[in-house]
Nucleic acid binder design. Structure first.
Lengths: 177, 177
DNA sequence: CCATATTAGTTACATTTGCAACTACTTTCA
DNA sequence: TGAAAGTAGTTGCAAATGTAACTAATATGG
């Protein structure tokens, strides 16, 4: 029974129990607390925070590499990087052997100071979130998440909508449903 | 050790292992496939799809109630509802005993047809995502998610940033990561 | 009853975001 | 070599989103 009907009305469907929906709610709720912190107290947007975080860990990578690691598109990264440069939180040079590449790093005192303020808060926040879970449960959760992510990834490659039935109202990329 | 330092540089921090971040990546990846489907083939945005879904299940509720059930704010709901009315997928009346209230329902042939097309796809997509998990694992995942959501909810109420240290660069609400 | 507060829903404005097109530079290969 | 193709990053424009301010209707309390 995959035709969507059962006695004339459509198959039972509860948004609340629909995986994409409640993952979205969970993600937004979990992100909210920490995001509000670094936004309100340090003026960092989510993309900015992500850029700082990966550059803290991988100094000298380029914007493209930041994008790969953070799953953000290059426009988002570009804008975040430029804002952070303006704020003095990042330094940018030019790769002499390939002048398209602009390696980035967290700047000497200012950028480092921000990270030293935000990271402990982020780790404490995460610890508080996970306080109820045993280490085993956390590991299970990570494992199951990883498997779902894997499944979603392969599904999205192969399982694209067969053919649009409707005037194609302008393709989208965003998601959250 | 919660001061963020260790030998002069900040505490080890991996964005990839940070709960808010990877939940965001998971949520986006999982949502992408199904969202692309109903967007490209039926012209529904994420808020529109959510509105249709809850109205399919709870016919006759108002926009406010839709907002509560979908965790979307009233402006988003209002706009989605008006678009859906324009498209002929919803019907709206006025509550005689309280004329502020405008009960909504999925419209007779057109709205129903959309739902009959999208719901089976959504359920099949979810089934494909979960195909690798045993029923027990799914239940575990739901349980752990629920506990995380609960924890995040209470954290967000009580654990607000103590006091902004910086010129408050324009409060935000959005979150992810 | 009437002033005030509250609730449902919409509108306005400012930001954010995303895709496409663009510039600049490098690689490929004929 | 040098034209074509590819890569790094930016910019322009249009759509989506969020906050606050608004209208309309109802409830409350003196």
């Amino acid at each position: 029974m995959s035709d969507g009907r059962r006695n004339g009305h459509y198959r039972h469907f509860d948004l609340e129990e629909f995986l994409p929906y409640w993952l979205s709610v969970l993600s937004n709720t979990v992100s909210q607390g920490i995001a509000r912190f670094y936004q309100q107290t340090h003026g960092l947007s989510v993309p900015e925070w992500r850029v700082m975080a990966v550059l803290g860990r991988y100094p000298g990578i380029t914007a493209s590499e930041v994008g790969e690691r953070t799953v953000m598109d290059k426009v988002t990264v570009s804008r975040a990087v430029n804002t952070l440069l303006d704020k003095g939180y990042l330094e940018r040079v030019t790769d002499a052997s390939d002048r398209r590449k602009r390696p980035l790093r967290v700047s000497a005192p200012r950028g480092t100071a921000i990270m030293e303020a935000v990271i402990p808060y982020a780790l404490d926040y995460q610890a508080a979130l996970l306080a109820d879970l045993t280490p085993a449960e956390l590991e299970t959760f990570q494992d199951l998440s990883a498997r779902l992510l894997q499944a979603a990834g392969t599904l999205n490659e192969h399982h694209s909508p067969n053919e649009p039935n409707i005037p194609k109202p302008r393709p989208k990329k965003t998601a959250n449903g």
